[in-house]
Design a protein around this nucleic acid. Structure first.
Length: 567
RNA sequence: CGGGGAGUGGCGCAGUCUGGUAGCGCACGUGCUUUGGGAGCACGUGGUCGCCGGUUCGAAUCCGGCCUCCCCGACCA
């Protein structure tokens, strides 16, 4: 294509509203424009990238035997009511009515829709396994769209669903997807890490997220420096050094702590305690019932872990008055010692601890000498705290690192969550009705674009991984009005295209600096310059984006040289 | 939803406090000169100052309401 005839609205300045690197560069390189919060128009250059990503995804899905569908994005409420999610999902689902006032929604995912087809059409175990997928627009009414395309309200997702007769079949489908995903991300130039993840309200037994390490991401993952342990922070667990607690402590002793309302304040209070020798007592209303949550003073509660432990997401922190009516004191003076009328959940880190300090359930008083085993009743133990960098790995003891990352894919073992609620079954070999065992697998395509840019850019612009670059080669004339240069550029353009490359011919009547800057910005992997100096020697300049200075290459060898570098 | 910031030609911004009818850089158009890393000169095009209402002789500027966007947090199948 000729650049002069192609719509590539590059920007010289950074747009004020773009913060994330990928967002900034996608705007500046003319890939996308914003329509509204979390809504982006794909411009020709951006859409080229998206289509190349799609092509890779299709190839890898077909390779594992998946078959492509295309379902509506607009759904009647019924399937969602059947699965129970119409009511489970809150404001994140876009809901609307048609002219008959019937409820509809815009699909945020398609478990129900695929399951309906499976229920209607799959009759026998002989038809299994099936892997079905689509590339579709998804809609989510995000509370806070951000970072450009990274968290949009409308986005493109490859979602697939596997249907098997048993768990072993599901395991196979899951592994096939894990392999396909690893290949997809690798081909797209993204360094991705599979991590253990929380399944959230999606249900199911096991899930793995594929994370691209990046500060632009919104998820934190813990990764072991020693073994292969990796998990989303919502799931991650860690070991702690054994606490240097006394072997025996006297009975809990109440002492006055006037004005002390925080862990921090108690650390500096005369006769107080270090944060790691305190019990942090939180009161939550869990399905409207007051519940105590205990953590070590210096640890933070992870609400996703809490949800998993409780088996419900219907909880919230109690208001100060609610704490008072439950325990007789306000926040800052709360504790679990002597509490037998309320459920108590405690984080593992407190197990076996002695000589701790906690609130006395009386304003301005605390208790010291608390022995968790001895002094607390009816405690349920679980992991509630956030893993901190440097915590020891549970498996090998090496320190964990905590990194920010972008979730580019997520695969779930759904099991029978949807087939049972929606009644999707087949006859097994004994003629008995058996619910389908399902998996669901998603990849965010725009996120791949953004993650690739986050991982591959420099001060001048994008450095596209070759497989998803909008063009393979840009041929830039130094002086468009020079007949010789234009002629050679045109010939190179033709021969490169003949060799199967996507080529952009920068024939614009611009100064060379402008053209070079633009070429750098849009990040095309190879740049060919038929400049006067090289032409005089029968050569052209060949530069690889992000890989140092240009080489002079004899005209006739250009195509093979680029092919060689791509091999 | 809580907190913070911002809406002024396509982009980046000044002007708002102290009211007098809109300006700068880039981009864009025309001409000339220029042509190896975002050229120079000259002339020019383009703005209901987010929207509605109010105060005033007069509002980008003051007052009230609303909308939108960005950032932090909460949230996130």
């Amino acid at each position: 294509m000729k650049w002069s005839r192609t719509f590539i609205p590059t920007l010289r300045d950074d747009p004020a509203d773009a913060d994330a690197v990928s967002h900034r560069l996608m705007l500046r390189a003319g890939l996308v424009r914003q329509l509204g919060a979390g809504l982006y128009s794909m411009l020709p250059l951006g859409y080229r990238v998206l289509r190349r990503v799609e092509a890779i995804v299709r190839e890898e899905m077909e390779r594992i035997g998946a078959q492509e569908f295309h379902h509506p994005a607009l759904h009647p409420a019924e399937p969602w009511r059947e699965s129970g999610r119409w009511d489970e999902i809150g404001e994140e689902m876009f809901r609307l009515h048609d002219r008959k006032r019937a409820d509809l929604c815009l699909g945020m995912t398609h478990e129900e829709i695929f399951t309906r087809v499976a229920r209607a059409e799959l009759r026998s175990y002989r038809q299994l396994p099936q892997i079905w997928y689509q590339i579709q627009t998804k809609f989510r009414d995000e509370a806070r769209p951000k970072s450009g395309v990274l968290r949009g309200r409308e986005f493109t997702m490859k979602d697939s669903y596997s249907f098997d007769l048993d768990d072993a079949g599901l395991d196979r489908a899951f592994e096939l997807h894990a392999g396909a995903y690893a290949r997809i991300f690798e081909r797209c130039g993204i360094e991705s890490l599979p991590v253990e993840a929380s399944s959230g309200a999606m249900g199911g037994s096991e899930s793995v997220e594929f994370m691209a390490l990046s500060d632009a991401g919104e998820d934190w993952i813990a990764r072991c420096s020693g073994c292969g342990y990796r998990a989303n922070l919502e799931k991650a667990r860690s070991a702690l050094e054994a606490a240097a607690d006394p072997d025996e402590v006297p009975e809990p002793e109440r002492f006055a702590t006037p004005g002390v309302r925080t862990i921090e304040a108690l650390t500096t209070f005369e006769g107080g305690a270090q944060a790691e020798r305190q019990i942090k007592t939180l009161v939550y209303l869990v399905e409207d019932e007051p519940t105590l949550l205990l953590l070590r003073g210096d640890h933070a509660l992870n609400e996703v872990k809490l949800a998993e432990a409780l088996g419900t997401a219907r909880f919230r922190p109690a208001q100060p008055e609610e704490c008072r009516s439950a325990l007789g004191a306000g926040p800052g003076s709360l504790g679990a010692v002597g509490v037998s009328h309320l459920p108590i959940w405690a984080d593992d880190a407190l197990a076996g601890r002695r000589g701790l300090t906690t609130g006395a359930n009386r304003d301005d008083f605390h208790l010291r000498h608390v022995d968790v085993e001895r002094d607390l009743e009816g405690v349920r133990w679980t992991s509630l705290r956030n893993v901190e960098p440097g915590d020891a790995c549970l498996d090998c003891g090496k320190p964990l690192e905590v990194r920010k990352s972008i979730e580019v894919g997520h695969i779930f073992k759904l099991g029978r969550r949807y087939s049972e609620t929606m009644g999707a079954s087949v006859l097994n070999e004994h003629g008995a009705e058996t619910p389908l065992v399902m998996g669901s697998y998603g990849i965010g395509l725009e996120r791949i674009m953004a993650a690739a840019i986050e991982g591959h850019h420099d001060a001048y612009g994008i450095v596209w991984p070759r497989a998803i670059a909008p063009f393979d080669v840009v041929v830039s004339t130094v002086k468009a009005s020079d007949a010789e240069q234009s002629r050679v550029a045109g010939e190179l353009y033709q021969s490169l295209r003949g060799a199967g490359f996507e080529v952009l011919l920068d024939d614009r009547d611009e100064r060379p600096g402008v053209k070079f800057k633009d070429a750098d910005l849009i990040g095309v992997p190879f740049r060919v310059i038929p400049g006067p100096r090289a032409l005089a020697k029968g050569c052209v300049e060949l530069a690889e984006r992000g890989a140092g200075p240009a080489d002079e290459v004899p005209l006739g060898e250009l195509v093979s040289r680029i092919q060689a570098r791509c091999a």
